[in-house]
């Protein structure tokens, strides 16, 4: 464990907990894409299957439970909680995310490190996580506005990805044989997706005007 990875995990946990807390507190999910949240729930469900078979550490298991619990709770609130569901922007959140699931599944069947059930699903979860933010970014462009929470959510997610890249650089130089091309490439693609959002987020913050 290194400081970059710990900071990355904390930032990631904070991003999902802030989102869950906001939805729970103000009973609204305006501006939030349920499709992105569903994709994240699938990412965690397919990546953390080994929670029952391989024990890495208390921290690892605890964090997996936090991510699973928070992502499924957010989907539950947005889909089944009456007050929250009413504020869900169905007309604008129309990204056909099942195509993303299908293409990531096919890609995982083609490119993976080991052809085993857990390994293919783990690789699938990496590919899916890289594109999971797309429905949210599309919704953000459509609604043209960004209430401070959605911006913070995406900002923290981008921060987590950036810190993980620093973590991989650190581990590459400190651990022999630490080479995970699939993880690195998907992580880089995901971080690049956030790059343009960061550019406009920074501009709006610098000029102190609403993000458009």
């Amino acid at each position: 464990m290194n400081i970059f990875r710990l900071a990355g995990d904390m930032t990631h946990m904070f991003s999902v907990l802030v989102l869950l807390l906001k939805i729970h507190t103000i009973k609204s999910c305006a501006g939030v894409s349920v499709k992105t949240q569903e994709l994240y729930a699938i990412v965690f469900a397919t990546r953390y299957l080994d929670i029952f078979t391989s024990f890495v550490s208390i921290y690892n298991t605890f964090m997996k439970l936090v991510f699973l619990g928070s992502s499924f709770s957010i989907v539950w609130y947005m889909r089944y909680h009456k007050a929250v569901h009413r504020t869900y922007d169905r007309e604008q959140d129309t990204f056909r995310h099942w195509f993303l699931v299908l293409s990531c599944l096919l890609l995982a069947l083609l490119i993976h490190e080991k052809f085993t059930f857990l390994e293919v699903l783990w690789t699938f979860s990496l590919y899916l996580e890289a594109v999971a933010i797309l429905p949210q970014l599309v919704l953000l462009q459509r609604t043209r506005n960004i209430d401070n929470l959605t911006g913070q959510y995406i900002f923290l997610l981008g921060g987590y990805r950036g810190l993980y890249i620093l973590n991989w650089i650190y581990r590459y130089f400190t651990e022999p044989h630490f080479v995970h091309w699939i993880t690195w490439i998907t992580g880089l693609v995901q971080t690049l997706l956030y790059a343009d959002f960061f550019y406009y987020y920074f501009l709006s913050w610098k000029n102190n005007k609403k993000l458009n």
Partner: peptide, 10 residues
Amino acid sequence: LDALLTHDEL
């Protein structure tokens, strides 16, 4: 080596 194979990152 097994430690390397099992995914220790979240």
